[in-house]
Design a protein around this nucleic acid. Structure first.
Length: 932
DNA sequence: GACATCACG
DNA sequence: GACGTACGTGATGTCC
């Protein structure tokens, strides 16, 4: 559509400065890799523009568009009032150089880019919006600036691009309590601390709207100010009438800004692909370049990756070359390798297997490396690939040493105390070796070295480490194995492919080890690595191999019962709604709730879908039965799919037991994580769920014993933050939440009610998490001000907490990490971020030393446990953060509890002398529900 | 594969 | 010029 702007045309006006500030605060301080130019705001700005352009499809797409910027800090408003915007903070140093680049970016996207000296963007927007309206067209202002709300109505609306929410007359009314034409009146009264618009002292938006609605408009109100009933309000308006009138002039937008262009100059244009991609390449925006190129149907520009390898140039730059990798096919060559390993005293080892589950996977081959660039692969059980092999014959490929012979030769070296076996995630390889009867020791683990140094910075998988610290991308496994249904196992990979892949893994592992070993000292985490990480490997390997007996019949019966109950609930639900729908689809539940049934509660989330989380449904459940049914159904569905059904699939065919896998380097705080299946989140809080634990049983003539630390994190908090009252309470064996409640609310302990105690408990936990008034309010479902009152009171009673929080934040800011009592470092790179991310990072920094110290304590206990219980017929099976679960021969329960409790309660000694005793509760039973 | 939801400490 | 808000995890189902 072209011609003179008028009816049927649609103008978009983007508030450029708002985009810039949003972009700046939303992203960490990024810099251009090649020269360090600050670039974060430009990156965010371009992303927003791109997303904006992409979103502009369909019948409502704009015909005309422009991005409008502020120009100069001095405007006509300063002539009226020299303090206008005087309390604005200066523009951040790293933002200033980015401002001109945002203009260039806008032009690169081929969107009109307008500004005018002496005027604010808002005035230009007002002028254009009014022109568009006068011409009979429509105008959408893309901004959420409340100052622009005065323009809304009669063909002009606003769009909050971040929330994807349009603001029409009603939206303005929601915000200001008046319709757009009276917005300036309300603003004139309420003032604006951000722009330093004075307004009337003591009058906010609510009162202002009240007054304007009562008297009609500002002039009438000021004229009839004498009539106002409240004496204080009356006097304020009389005394400050001039100031209020000035305020109105300040907030009133100039709809007659002289402009040297017309609406027709703003017609939407196709982007110039070369110019746009050129600009993005210049800025070195890799991801965005690719995305934009894809949309434009062009080749993405090549952006040179400056080789910044974070190894400090400490590793000799020996190139990765497959020519240095050899296949070992005979005993003589293998022996030569073993001899060399003895000369060096260490070797990097990697196993290749038929799968990722060590309990099921079979050993296929072994790779070794002692010098960077020189590695070997010993294939053992690779299958042959004859052309007529349609049915997958079991014939072994040529050129492989007999497995038994190779293992017989390797075993002395693998178990020799003088030879360090280096691996990347050694727990995996040692479990594979354990399968064939080889107890690999001693070990080093590059994954755990990285974890000790880099927790919180990045993952610790081999690909990540190799790229980051060696500047080398490892050969990917995908092309070798394929994916989906046609995927093969490693024993089917032809040796020509298998050798370089496998050998390279050992090569990379060795290089990482050579790099990391000296760095551990420099970062001062050698102790952490040697006492908290490395020794845990054999302990966890043993626990995982033990597994826990799970009774299939119990699960199966429960699953059937759940299925029946769910079917019953579904019938009731369909009955209530009058039609069938997928109860498992949150989107459909939302539609039914808020459209079919017409309940109160709004849209949420960027996708425009209704939010139907448990807290929302619980609130609705007080009024209606329907949400309650959904909640019940969801609980059953969760229990059935995740627990009774999935758990059965995890019962090992050979052992009849479930073998989880613990990741040692998964959680940044030092906690373990449990996967495949996760046995750290087996239900317990609900009565129905708790029964799942009845399926976790002891073998005949054995019992399960659970030992768990009592309030370990609060005890650690009491020690770290040095809170005498808390310490004393623990010493006296008090109910800690009741004691907190008593202190805060001045209620004697013997008059404590469950509800007051519950509130104190929420506060105690909140403190550990880096509390905020908002979070506590939401958790307790009380007004925010009340929650803030609780927190203030808590800080007053336990002043050490505030100090701890402030000190921890300051430490994190200064050093970029925080520490546990045992010296574990948790990096906090986001602590320097701007905007809301800073809040996240600060709370995580406050929590990490507490959660991490507790994790260290139980790690120490676990490491000492095997030796402490070696004479007791008991096996350690599971760890659940503050709990250890054992399987014990009947009759030995008391011995086990005594020995294990002793280890756990004294696990901090002798490195850390806690001011607060750790205590451990014990339980015994034939299943996990009874034992807990 | 992203997102929402919910299980645990 | 306005954030979005309690810490740490993993598994499942829906929907694109």
């Amino acid at each position: 559509m072209s011609g003179t702007f008028g009816k049927g045309h649609h103008l978009h006006l983007i508030d450029g400065s708002a985009f810039i500030f949003r972009a700046y605060h939303a992203l960490p301080p990024l810099t251009r890799k090649s020269d360090g130019l600050p670039i974060g705001a430009v990156a965010g700005f371009c992303n927003m523009l791109h997303r904006y352009v992409e979103g502009n499809t369909g019948p409502d797409a704009p015909t005309h568009a422009a991005v409008i910027f502020d120009k100069g800090s001095h405007t006509f408003r300063n002539e009226m009032y020299d303090l206008y915007k005087a309390n604005r903070e200066a523009m951040p140093e790293d933002l200033r150089p980015q401002i001109p680049l945002t203009r260039t970016a806008t032009e690169a996207f081929n969107i009109a880019c307008k500004e005018k000296e002496g005027y604010e963007a808002d005035d230009i927007i007002a002028t254009l919006a009014v022109q568009a309206r006068a011409a009979g067209g429509r105008c959408t202002i893309i901004s959420s600036d409340k100052d622009l709300m005065q323009l809304v109505g009669d063909g002009v609306e606003m769009l909050d691009a971040m929330k994807n929410r349009t603001i029409d007359r009603e939206g303005v009314f929601e915000k200001f309590g008046v319709y757009p034409e009276r917005v300036v009146d309300v603003q004139a009264l309420a003032g604006d601390s951000v722009d330093n618009v004075p307004g009337a002292p003591g009058i906010g938006i609510k009162t202002a709207a009240l007054l304007i609605n009562e008297y009609g408009d500002l002039d009438a109100l000021l004229k009839r100010a004498e009539e106002i009933k409240q004496p204080k309000r009356r006097q304020t308006l009389i005394d400050h009438a001039d100031q209020i009138r000035l305020s109105r002039k300040l907030v009133l937008l100039d709809e007659n800004t002289p402009l040297d262009f017309t609406l027709d100059d703003l017609e939407v244009r196709e982007p110039d692909a070369d110019k746009l991609l050129g600009f993005l390449a210049d800025m070195e925006f890799r991801t965005l370049s690719k995305r934009v190129a894809e949309v434009l149907g062009k080749e993405a520009p090549v952006i040179e990756e400056p080789k910044v390898v974070e190894n400090g140039g400490e590793v000799a730059e020996i190139p990765f070359d497959q020519a240095g990798y050899e296949q070992i096919s005979d005993a003589k060559t293998l022996q030569a390798w073993i001899d060399r390993i003895y000369e060096f005293g260490y070797v990097a080892v990697d196993t290749e297997t038929t799968g990722l589950d060590e309990m099921v996977a079979d050993l296929v081959g072994i790779s070794l490396c002692v010098e960077p660039g020189k590695a070997c692969y010993i294939p053992l059980l690779h299958k042959s690939h004859s052309a007529d092999d349609l049915f997958g014959s079991d014939d072994l490929a040529e050129g492989q040493i007999q497995t038994e012979e190779a293992l017989r030769m390797l075993t002395p070296m693998l178990t020799d105390p003088s030879i360090i076996k280096i691996g990347q995630n050694m727990k995996y390889d040692s479990k594979i070796f354990a399968q064939v009867g080889i107890a690999v020791a001693p070990i080093d683990d590059t994954m755990l070295m990285s974890y000790a140094m880099h927790a919180g910075l990045h993952g610790h998988g081999m690909d990540t480490l190799s790229e980051r610290y060696l500047g080398h991308t490892p050969i990917p496994i995908k092309p070798l194995l394929g994916s989906g249904k046609s995927a093969i196992t490693f024993d089917k990979v032809p040796l020509a492919d298998a050798v370089p892949y496998a050998a390279e893994d050992a090569d990379i592992t060795l290089r990482l080890w050579q790099l990391f070993k000296p760095q551990l000292h420099r970062v001062q985490v050698t102790k952490v690595y040697e006492t908290l990480e490395r020794p845990l490997v054999p302990v966890l390997a043993a626990m995982e191999r033990s597994g826990i007996k799970v009774d299939r019949d119990t699960l199966s019966r429960m699953s059937n019962a759940f299925a029946q109950k769910m079917a019953g609930l579904e019938d009731e639900i369909y009955e209530m709604v009058g039609r069938k729908f997928n109860v498992g689809s949150p989107a459909q539940v939302g539609e039914v709730l808020f459209e079919d049934m017409g309940l109160e509660g709004g849209k949420k989330g960027a996708n425009g879908k209704y939010s139907t989380g448990a807290t929302i449904l619980e609130d609705l459940a007080t009024e209606h039965d329907f949400p309650k049914r959904i909640l019940d159904w969801r609980q059953l569905s969760k229990l059935k799919s995740t627990y009774t059904d999935a758990l059965q699939e995890h019962i090992n065919k050979d052992t009849g037991r479930v073998h989880t896998s613990y990741s040692i380097a998964g959680a940044s705080t030092g906690r373990l994580a449990s996967t495949d299946p996760n046995l750290q989140n087996i239900p317990i809080r609900s009565e129905e769920g708790r029964r799942i634990r009845e399926a976790f049983v002891a073998e005949e003539d054995k019992v399960l014993v659970a030992l768990d630390y009592s309030q370990i994190e609060l005890r650690i908090l009491a020690h770290i933050a040095n809170i005498p009252a808390l310490k004393q309470a623990f010493k006296d064996g008090l109910d800690i939440h009741a004691m907190t409640a008593s202190e805060m609310f001045d209620v004697p302990l013997d008059e404590m009610t469950p509800d007051v105690r519950r509130q104190a408990k929420a506060i105690n936990f909140g403190v550990i998490y880096g509390i905020s008034g908002f979070g506590l309010a939401r958790n307790l479902r009380i007004p925010r001000a009340e929650a803030q009152g609780f927190i203030d009171r808590y800080f007053e009673r336990f002043p050490g907490i505030r100090t701890y929080m402030d000190d921890t934040k300051a430490f994190a800011k200064e050093h970029g990490y925080v520490q546990t009592l045992f010296g574990r470092k948790i990096n906090t790179p986001e602590i320097a971020a701007k905007g809301p991310r800073a809040g996240f990072a600060q709370r995580a920094a406050i929590n990490a030393p507490i959660q991490g110290t507790a994790a260290d304590v139980i790690r120490r206990a676990m490491i000492r446990m095997p030796d402490a219980i070696k004479d007791i017929p008991a096996t350690m099976l599971l760890q659940v953060h503050d709990e250890l679960l054992f399987e014990v021969e009947k009759g030995a329960e008391d011995d086990l509890i005594k020995a294990a409790r002793d280890v756990m309660e004294n696990a901090a000694d002798p490195v850390v002398k806690l001011d607060v005793k750790l205590t451990v509760d014990a339980g015994i039973g034939s299943n996990w529900a009874e034992a807990h």
